[in-house]
Structures are given as C-alpha cells and as structure tokens.
C-alpha cells in the first residue's frame, strides 16, 4: 500500500457514522477512493447491533430512550456495542483484492488490528490480540472489531476504549451465559479502558495521531489527510436507511 487516506476524527451521530462507513466502503470498493482510515466518535451515545442480531434481545430500548441513546444496526455482523463519546472508533477500508490485507478472515482481522495493538503499546497499554476479533489487556476487552466484505471492498470498523461511560451500560441486555463463558460477572468487569490502565485521559486527537503513524508503519504507506470525495457525500441518503425503523428492527 503506497498511500493511506485519513479522514480525521470527528463526532457524528449513529446513523451518520454508519452511513459514512458504508459510503466510504462503496467508494473504495469501486476504485474511486484509495485505501482509507477514518477516525470518529459517537455523540450522542449509541448502541450498535450486529447485522444478524435480534434487536429486542440485545438492547434495553426503554433505557436507551430515557437516556437519549441512539440505536443503529450495523452493516457488519458481530455483537451489540455501547458507544460513548469517550470511545475512539476507526474504520478501515480497502479494495477486496488489496494485497496488503489477507483474504482469510482471521488473518485479515489480525493484520488490521496489529497497528491498533502497536499504538496502544506505544502509550503504555499492554494490549494483545484475542481471536477472532478482539484486543485485550489483562483478559479485559479494550477494543473490538467487525468486518464486512461487500461492494468490492473489505471494511473493518471497531472500537478503541480510551474511556467509557459505565453509567450507560444498562443499554445492553447481556445474557448470563455469555458472561459466564468469558469469566466475568458483568460487562463492566470484562472491559477496560486506556484511562483506567494509564490512570490518565488520552485525548481522541492524541491517540489518533499515534494510530495513524502506526498504520503507516504496518502497511508501509504514507498517510495523508483528505476530505470526503464527491460520491462519498451520498452519505445523507444512506443515512435515511440507518435511521429507518425497517432497517433497525429488521431482525
């Protein structure tokens, strides 16, 4: 990979965030945009659910409504995630046949998570990969990713918990079976954040800078900041879908 386009950190609401990931993916997949790393945050807070999940099983809708937490269905599979404004979210899109990303799913998760692990280690967080798609510190999850492959592209997006607003965790309905398996009593007990590990806050801007450099190293690419291309500005029309009841409640 020669050049990596970076869409700099910005907060967005949930439907916008998911629509823009899709717009970028479509553009990259059709060869109109180069490989792209986008950094973003969620404001207001939101729950995103996986493509195959049943919304009423995963989300405490009443609590979300009360607290102003948005709910959005992702294009990617995987589990439900609570996104609070302290999280840094990334999305990484390449053409489906880009030689810098392995074709096998497990290998590709590892390849795209590697720069995140390096960046976390650089600031003193002893992170390691947990297959299939998590990054952990001392057995607690600090980052989770999900991939979708369509429109001629591979998109991987995921969380990096710089911090977390634990008071919003009741937004997720978590089954007892699932927690028992991972050896933790509740969700709060199986995640951790950069702020907790280091005992100080690391800003979105600060970590973004380190992360971009780490992606450059791992992909042997030169990163450059760029605006969205014209066809990526279709995000507002895609946004309609992510805001719609049909899409959100389809399962």
């Amino acid at each position: 990979m020669k050049r990596l386009r970076v869409i700099e950190f910005e907060f967005g609401d949930a439907p916008f965030n998911m629509a823009l990931d899709e717009a970028i993916m479509r553009s990259v997949g059709s060869g109109k945009s180069p490989p792209t790393l986008r950094l973003y945050g969620w404001d207001p807070p939101a729950v995103s659910i996986g493509y195959f999940q049943e919304i009423k099983e995963e989300v405490n809708l009443e609590f979300c409504h009360e607290k102003g937490i948005q709910v959005v269905r992702r294009l990617s599979g995987g589990g439900a995630v609570l996104h609070t404004p302290k999280e840094l979210t990334y999305s990484f899109a390449v053409e489906a046949n880009d030689p810098s990303v392995p074709q096998d799913i497990q290998g590709s998760y590892l390849k795209i998570c590697a720069p995140i692990i390096s960046a976390l280690r650089e600031i003193g967080v002893p992170a390691s990969f947990r297959p299939v798609n998590d990054i952990e510190v001392r057995k607690r999850k600090i980052s989770g990713s999900a991939q979708t492959r369509r429109f001629g592209a591979i998109l991987q997006h995921g969380t990096i918990l710089l911090g977390m607003d634990y008071s919003l965790l009741p937004a997720l309905r978590v089954r007892a079976e699932k927690l028992a398996e991972k050896g933790a009593k509740d969700v709060a007990g199986r995640i951790t954040t950069v702020a907790e590990i280091l005992g100080k806050e690391v800003s979105h801007a600060e970590f973004s800078k380190i992360l971009v450099r780490s992606f450059e190293d791992h992909f042997g690419a030169v990163a450059y900041s760029s605006d969205l291309s014209e066809d990526e500005c279709i995000a507002p029309t895609l946004e309609e879908r992510y805001r719609s009841i049909d899409w959100t409640f389809r399962r």
Binding site: G50, Y51, F52, Q53, E54, E57, L75, S76, G77, G78, G79, A80, I105, V132, A146, Q147, T148, R149, R150, R251
Partner: peptide, 15 residues
Amino acid sequence: AKITGDFFAHPEEGI
C-alpha cells in the same frame, strides 16, 4: 425461518 445472533457470515446475504 430466522437465524439471529452475534456471528459473522461473509457475504452477509448468505444467511
């Protein structure tokens, strides 16, 4: 028939 959960399928439409 409905198959739901937190698994992954590539391509997703396969499910």
